[in-house]
């Protein structure tokens, strides 16, 4: 597991690739993404979803 903290303003290309319009925006394995702080259980659910390869939209918390 690795974690990058990316300064969106300094990497506009990367921010553009992931459609970063608001921060914090989290992208996991290029497939699962969400905006804003999440409680730990919901964050975990996104990680598990990304690691299972399931890219269907997750149910709202």
């Amino acid at each position: 597991m690795r974690a990058d903290i990316v300064e969106a303003g300094e990497f506009p290309e990367l921010a553009g690739r992931y459609n970063v319009y608001a921060v914090p925006k989290v992208v996991i394995n290029d497939t699962v993404e969400f905006v804003g702080a999440q409680l730990e259980p919901q964050f975990l659910r996104y990680v598990l979803q990304a690691s299972s390869g399931d890219t269907s939209p997750s149910p709202s918390p």
């Binding site: 597991m1 690795r2 990316v6 921060v23 925006k25 989290v26 290029d30």
Partner: peptide, 20 residues
Amino acid sequence: TRAALSQVSRDVHVQVFVTP
């Protein structure tokens, strides 16, 4: 959460986009 994550076998890459 640790227990759940320990079951993950695939690499996980988390990117957090921020501004100062």
